[in-house]
């Protein structure tokens, strides 16, 4: 699988991007290539937030891009193209997880949400989350169980409501909420430890477009 497409921080000119999309809509393979090479790194990043195994994440990346290209004619230039693609990737990742639901589902949580008392955490100062880098996030998420990871990402990053998450993952709203609280608590501890060790990086040059 070499050589790799390397991540790039150079923003794409919207006019250029539009041309790429139009070429892809005309089923030009060159259009597919340009889009793939520009966006594969951020899409794999989004997928890895859900799927720990790199091999599985690549499967999802491939399936996701197949769906993107199969449906690109339906993209109407309304809303962010990258956001549209990422939704497809996230959905594909969830489907992949759910297709093996027998092992990734965690049982109902006997612990109620309001029982979670974080007195140990509140003693410490809230760290500066703004300095987080992508590696911190991925490596921290890798330490969560698959269900925690999915619930956390869907709520915190993709910003779905718990109702939608419950529906997507086939769990109850209560489980989604309590899993979120537990995932967040664990993630916070893991990230705080990383930051304390000085591995929280400023890195990742600002990408804006």
């Amino acid at each position: 699988m070499k050589p790799f497409v390397n991540p790039s921080s150079t923003p794409v000119d919207p006019v250029v991007l539009r041309r790429w999309i139009e070429r892809s809509q005309a089923k030009e393979s060159e259009g597919y290539r340009l889009i793939y090479e520009r966006f594969a790194p951020v899409m794999i990043l989004a997928i890895r937030r859900y799927i720990k195994s790199e091999a599985d994440a690549l499967d999802v990346l491939q399936d996701g891009f197949l769906k993107v290209f199969a449906n690109i004619e339906g993209y109407t230039f309304r809303g962010s193209f990258e956001g549209w693609m990422r939704r497809i990737m996230v959905n594909t990742a969830i489907d992949a997880l759910r297709s093996r639901k027998s092992v990734w589902l965690v049982g109902d949580n006997e612990e109620m949400l309001d029982n979670i008392v974080d007195d140990a955490l509140s003693e410490e100062e809230e760290p500066v989350w703004a300095t987080l880098g992508q590696d911190d996030i991925i490596e921290a998420m890798d330490q969560l169980t698959p269900m925690y990871r999915a619930v956390f990402n869907l709520f915190a990053i993709e910003q779905f409501g718990h109702k939608d998450i419950a529906l997507k993952l086939g769990i109850s709203v209560g489980t989604s909420k309590s899993n979120y609280a537990k995932a967040r608590r664990n993630l916070k501890v893991i990230l705080m430890e990383r930051i304390a060790k000085g591995s929280g990086r400023q890195s990742d040059k600002k990408r804006n477009d």
């Binding site: 790799f4 390397n6 991540p7 921080s9 989350w129 987080l132 990053i157």
Partner: peptide, 26 residues
């Protein structure tokens, strides 16, 4: 300080991404 979620979203927004397989694979 910013809430954890906001901090993470911002970090991901500016993240360059991870190395991906070459186009020939796709």
């Amino acid at each position: 300080g910013v809430p954890l979620e906001t901090g993470m979203r911002k970090a991901l927004d500016r993240a360059p991404g991870l190395a991906a397989p070459a186009w020939s694979w796709m």
